[in-house]
């Protein structure tokens, strides 16, 4: 068996530089194998939230693309409690589970610079470019990148599809009436 992956033998000088840059980022991602994972950022912690303001904005823009349905009249993610739900979920998890999530967000934010050679961050891209960037994460040959994608995708789906506003879109009737609470 050829020990060198085919892709490696085909690598050009430019490709090699890209690979080196990507590898440096991936090395930082090594801790992300069991995702989702990051310590609550200092900014987030101070406000009683998991993500700080800049992380929240990155997360929001990622989640908007993850749940984009192209339907007129669909509830906008920002108009729902989706991001607050994600934040609350992360805050409630053991830090060992969420330790590297803020790092993952920043890697996606700066991903276009490293992987796509564009001098703009994720949040500066148009919708189509954001989708292309996320597709790069989803289809990467690096397992770590795919895991980052899946973690952020699943958090986005948790946030959005747990919102009542999203249920009519998919024909979900929602929970049945709750039973009466036991008397105190």
């Amino acid at each position: 068996m050829d020990p060198l992956p085919t892709d490696f033998r085909r690598t050009t000088r430019r490709g090699f530089l890209r690979l080196a840059a990507a590898s440096a980022s991936l090395a930082a991602l090594a801790e992300l194998r069991s995702l989702p994972a990051a310590a609550t950022s200092a900014a987030g912690e101070a406000s009683g939230r998991f993500f700080g303001p800049s992380e929240t904005e990155i997360l929001t823009q990622i989640a908007e693309r993850m749940v984009d349905c192209g339907q007129a009249g669909a509830p906008r993610l920002r108009a729902t409690g989706a991001i607050a739900t994600i934040d609350r979920t992360c805050l409630a998890l053991d830090p060992a589970t969420t330790r590297l999530l803020p790092t993952a967000l920043r890697l996606v934010e700066y991903g276009p610079l490293v992987f796509d050679w564009t001098f703009r961050r994720f949040t500066q891209l148009g919708d189509a470019e954001k989708d292309a960037s996320l597709t790069g994460w989803m289809t990467s040959r690096f397992e770590i990148r795919r895991l980052v994608f899946r973690a952020l995708r699943n958090l986005s789906l948790l946030g959005y599809y747990s919102q009542e506003e999203s249920w009519p879109l998919i024909g979900y009737a929602g929970p049945l009436l709750r039973p009466p609470r036991p008397s105190a």
């Binding site: 349905c69 192209g70 996320l134 986005s156 789906l157 948790l158 599809y161 999203s166 024909g171």
Partner: peptide
Amino acid sequence: GFPVLTAANLPGFGRAHFAHMAKFSR
């Protein structure tokens, strides 16, 4: 499954993902 568990098991993201989610009740 309910919406979140179902969504997590379907592939893709964005409109490609929603093309499957739109059929949730079926």
